[in-house]
Simulated scan of single mutants.
Amino acid sequence: MRDRIRQKEGRSPRPTAAIEDSQWQQAAANIPGSTSGWDGGKKVGDRKSRLVVDGLGPVLAVKVTAASVQGVDATGTE
């Protein structure tokens, strides 16, 4: 589907750039504490959901990590 959206816009089917953002989420009570963490910069705990999209908006990847995992470590990019 993403490939068709990009081709409709006159772009290559494969994106060459991406945008990443994260959002803090409170884990449910039944989630083990070992999978949660503390983000000292934002002063929040539990988990972060990370979303990577291409320049047109279609989702490339979604990942949920402990809040203590930094963006570089979560996505493998700098």
Score class of each variant (00 low, 15 high):
Gly10Gln: 04
Ile19Ala: 05
Asp39Glu: 09
Val62Asn: 02
Arg14Ser: 12
Val64Ile: 15
Pro58Asp: 10
Thr35Arg: 00
Asp46Asn: 15
Val69Leu: 07
Ala17Gly: 09
Lys43Asn: 13
Trp24Glu: 07
Lys8His: 12
Asp46Thr: 11
Gly10Asp: 06
Asn30Asp: 11
Ala61Phe: 13
Asp46Ser: 11
Leu51Cys: 11
Thr75Ile: 12
Gly45Tyr: 01
Thr77Pro: 00
Ala29Glu: 08
Glu20Gln: 04
Ala74Ile: 08
Asp21Arg: 02
Gly71Ile: 10
Ala17Thr: 14
Leu56Val: 08
Val72Thr: 10
Asp46Tyr: 09
Lys8Gly: 11
Arg14Tyr: 13
Pro15Lys: 02
Asp21Gln: 03
Thr35Gly: 00
Lys63Thr: 15
Val44Leu: 13
Asp54His: 02
Ala66Gln: 04
Val62Phe: 06
Val69Asn: 00
Val44Phe: 04
Val64Ala: 07
Gly71Glu: 08
Gln25Ile: 15
Gln26Lys: 10
Ser12His: 13
Val64Met: 04
Ala18Leu: 10
Gly40Ser: 12
Arg2Asn: 13
Gly55Trp: 01
Pro58Met: 06
Val69Ser: 02
Gly45Cys: 09
Lys8Met: 12
Glu78Thr: 15
Ala61Ile: 06
Thr77Val: 07
Pro32Trp: 03
Ser36Ala: 10
Trp24Gly: 09
Met1Asp: 08
Ala74Asp: 03
Ser49Gln: 09
Thr65Ile: 09
Val53Ile: 15
Arg11Phe: 13
Pro32Tyr: 01
Ala67Asp: 12
Met1Gly: 10
Thr16Gly: 14
Glu20Tyr: 09
Ala29Trp: 03
Gly45Trp: 01
Val59Glu: 00
Ile31Thr: 14
Ala74Ser: 14
Ala18Cys: 13
Asp39Tyr: 06
Lys63Asn: 13
Pro15Ile: 12
Thr77Asn: 08
Val52Arg: 05
